[in-house]
Design a protein around this nucleic acid. Sequence first.
RNA 1: GGAGGAGUGCCCGAGUGGUUAAAGGGGACGGACUGUAAAUCCGUUGGCUUUGCCUACGUUGGUUCGAAUCCAACCUCCUCCA
Length: 417
Amino acid sequence: MTVYKSDFMRTLSERGFIYQCSDTDALDRLFLSETVTAYIGFDCTAKSLHVGSLVQIMMLHWLQETGHRPLALMGGGTTRIGDPTGKDEARKILTDEEIEENKAGIRKVFDRFLTFGDGPKDAIMADNADWLMGLRYIDFLREIGRFVSVNQMLQRDSVKLRLEREQHLSLLEFNYMVLQAYDYVELTRRYGCRLQMGGSDQWGNILSGVDLGRRLTETELFALTTPLLTTSSGAKMGKTADGAVWLNADMRSPYDYWQFWRNTEDADVGRFLKLFTKLPLDEIARLEALEGAELNEAKKILANEATRLMHGDEAAAEAAETARKTFEEGALAQSLPSIEVPQTDLEAGIGLLAAYVQAGLCASNGDVRRNVKGGAVRINDETVTDERRTLTAADLTSDGVIKLSLGKKKHILLRPV
RNA sequence: GGAGGAGUGCCCGAGUGGUUAAAGGGGACGGACUGUAAAUCCGUUGGCUUUGCCUACGUUGGUUCGAAUCCAACCUCCUCCA
């Protein structure tokens, strides 16, 4: 491993953030000599970012931590195009309202990890809609387009794969990387930005910006990517049956977030501790050296720390306590995620199928039926064998709730109101 | 512009008139085993008011008692020719 002199590069390197970099030595020197502004772009394709973006967010956090200036770029403009990278086909076109709503949701996350303001080291949030929306086609082609090589674009994986897989690629999507490249230049002009970071899938897009920057601003710009995050058994990070592991609390509760980290595979514990917590490396080394069941302690610490960063001390402690009661005591924890149903509905009797679908434990009635057959459905810890069972006030426990479980790990409380 | 080939479920991929909600694999979910892990084994994997009905094999129409399978047009991709 290269030994870096700057705090930022050393930290990133030691903690496993670096996958590719356009010029590590020069970048290291840059970080030693000045306060560097670096950016990462986030498209507004959903109301929240998910754990897949967390590595990126942590990088911005470390950037500020080591005395530099992070810039979070909202893709308010580029989201109107849709990044073809890694996609088989164009995503559906989002409406302006959806994009604005998504942007608002995504912004919230950054307040937890960055300090914004007007000072020289305060983080900046920008939106590429500000300069992309007003572009004029012919002007843009003449000023920027002449410096963009189609030959090079065709070599980029995002494009090449599409073509090789015999899938349609529209001019709209093809332009995405040109706009991303232009973003980089624009940020260099506006904020003196010198570095763009991103996931490894963004390497091509980022380099396009570096090339364009060299031609237009005669400044050396840098590119740095993180490794694609997969679990040791090869699955993509953060993708589960119930979808992505969202960061926003209203889309995935702190308890479920905590559980996500608690269920980390053994082989990933050390790697994740380095990437997703701020624990000192010697402490991490101690934790990942644990073996067998003892590793569970390390997983709890991982869950605690990751949840703390995301949702705060209180939420993390509560999630840990809920998990302890549920899994270690087998007791009913009042703080499990819950859904509310009107008292009157309960008195009338709620169908098992409806309850599970409403709780989000199953996708459809048929899904519940299948799980009943498979013995996965339990009410108040008793296995249900009759799919036509109804839930009534008689099912309320002494705590006044009904515990719906799917499998061993998913529990939702049903609360009458 | 011309000739030929292709488009199947979350993904890959078989199927070329009824027995096909569609083989097989992957993934995912559930069960067993464990440590709320991995690996392994087993089961499940379109929806619904479930002995039935509805939706689904690029899109839209058509032929037929009956179509993923035949025909037409369109969309997209590939190969060759101009």
